[in-house]
Nucleic acid binder design. Structure first.
Length: 462
RNA sequence: UCCUCAGUAGCUCAGUUGGUUAGAGCGGCGGACUGUUAAUCCGUAGGUCGUAGGUUCAAGUCCUACCUGAGGAGCCA
């Protein structure tokens, strides 16, 4: 007999049919005549109830049906006689596939703290919350590819190992095969990386953007979707050392086209999840974040507010709110400022543009005022900046001047500069942190709980 | 990295101004119960109080250092 998943069984229209089920025991209840076994196989958040008449099963075998054990059940799918579920399986045969010693199995029927579950990240997939989160994570990954594929974008694989650390997006992890105890030294006593695997110092990538631009300036529209790495000693619920980022890059797009794409993209992803993951979202809305569905629907429907950095600073100055950090043109906005704009002033997502050039990266398109650049940040409720992007500087001399001012060596980025030398065009792009997106869509408040095996300072266990 | 808070049973926590043998709920185990829904009821085992020093007649409780975790900040996505 072919195995049916819990998802298939719960949605089956045909009843009183012989079925084969395999899964893990979540809970077991009962009396001296009947056992009610809640079985989950991860295909859907709900369990299916298996009913076993104890008279027809050996006591030995039933004793092994404990929380966490895996079982195979043959029985009849019937309408449930009890309340609480529509269908259940009247078991004819139950086989324990894998025992689970209840003395030591760490998951119990009651809820656990996320902190505790993080310590058993290898087993936390078996909980309702993490099942929901990782099913949604999958759905979003698929939706991202679908969105860009349908729009004619090409998925470009930018390198994980890179030689340049010119972007300055953060501290990097060194990649080396040299013997750390006895590295080759130059005459000056420095480590001689010319003898290293790549013949030069290399690192894990902090962003695929610069390579992404190379692709866009030939293929028109590309996107990257892959892991990135930051060796920052950040200890916050919003930072991990290894995270996934989506970076679209589009030739012939100006900053407005860029904003339009970012807004449409985010709304599409929310809509996709609402359409395909409602079971999981309803669970999270009930158990994790009571305002989740309302917030998702709201963001999905509202137009994002678009304002310049300068206008935002004026609003913050005029507000009665007392901020811990000063508001002054030229200073970067703090988390408290962004939160005020989104959650209290506009009460909707906000896109801020035209930031002072001194607080932004070298590659951003310089405005004619000589003070600002065509940057855009998308700010979301609860999580703050979810997208950062810009129109890129396509004029060679302006780009070179800016690099000089910021002490970025030209010879390391000669290949980047050549795209401005040969057939340069207006282009734009942005970066979306995948985990930050998942946090927003699931209502989870710690980034370590939306990535299967989080990498943070001091933590690489699993 | 800085600031704040926390660390007591497998899990979640209580433990009074320092004062006898350290408590509960859940989970586990044993039993009862004719359809349970985080089942219920009865019983039972389970703890070097994060680690190391110190103060004191006496420390889970006070002090110091360290370790671990969480939250806030910075960096950012």
């Amino acid at each position: 007999m072919k195995r049916s998943t819990v998802k298939e069984l719960l949605r089956a229209t045909e009843k009183d049919k012989q079925v084969l089920l395999k899964g893990w025991v979540r809970t077991r209840r009962g009396n001296n005549q009947l056992a009610f076994i809640a079985v989950n196989d991860g295909t859907i958040i709900h369990n299916i109830q298996v009913v076993a008449d104890l008279a027809s099963f050996s006591e030995e075998e039933m004793k092994r049906v404990t929380t966490g054990s895996s079982i195979s059940v043959i029985g009849t799918l019937v309408e449930s006689m009890g309340k609480g579920q529509n269908v259940e399986i009247q078991a004819k045969e139950i086989e324990v596939l894998g025992d689970s010693d209840p003395e030591v199995y760490p998951l119990q029927k009651k809820g656990h703290s996320f902190e505790f579950l993080r310590e058993i990240a290898h087993l936390r997939f078996r909980t309702n919350t993490f099942g929901a989160v990782f099913r949604i994570r999958h759905a979003l990954a698929y939706a991202i590819h679908k969105y860009y594929n349908d729009k004619g974008f090409f998925y470009l694989h930018t390198p994980i190992v890179t030689a340049s650390d010119a972007e300055g997006a953060g501290a990097m992890f060194r990649v080396s095969t040299l013997d750390p105890k006895n590295p080759p030294l130059s005459k000056e006593g420095e480590v001689d990386y010319s003898q290293d695997f790549f013949g030069r110092p290399t690192n894990l990538t902090v962003s695929g953007q610069l390579e992404g631009e190379l692709g866009a300036l030939a293929l028109s529209s590309i996107y990257t979707f892959g892991p990135t790495f930051r060796a920052e000693n950040s200890n916050t619920p919003r930072h991990v050392a290894e995270f996934w980022m989506i970076e679209p890059e589009m030739a012939f797009y100006d900053i407005t086209d860029n904003m339009d794409l970012a807004e449409d993209f985010l709304k599409y992803l929310i809509q996709y999840t609402l359409e395909h993951c409602m079971d999981d979202l309803e669970f999270l809305n009930k158990m994790v974040d009571k305002g989740l569905l309302e917030r998702l629907n709201f963001v999905q429907k509202q137009p994002f507010e678009r304002k310049s950095y300068t206008e935002a600073v004026e609003i913050l100055k005029k507000s009665d709110k007392k901020f811990e950090f000063p508001v002054k043109w030229g200073l970067d906005l703090q988390a408290e400022h962004e939160r005020y704009l989104v959650e209290e002033h506009y009460k909707r997502p906000v896109i801020l543009t035209d930031y002072p050039r001194d607080i932004k990266a070298f590659y951003m398109k310089q405005n004619d005022d000589g003070k600002t650049v065509r940057a855009m940040d998308v700010l979301f409720p609860t999580i703050g900046e979810i997208i950062g992007g810009s129109q890129r500087e396509e004029e060679l001399d302006k780009l070179q001047n800016r690099m000089k001012e910021m002490n970025i060596p030209e010879d390391e980025l000669w290949w980047y500069l050549e795209t401005r030398k040969f057939g340069t065009v207006e282009h734009s792009g942005f970066g979306l942190g995948f985990e930050r997106l998942i946090m927003f869509i699931t209502g989870m408040s710690n980034i370590r709980d939306v990535i299967p095996f989080p990498r943070t300072p001091g933590h690489a266990e699993f």
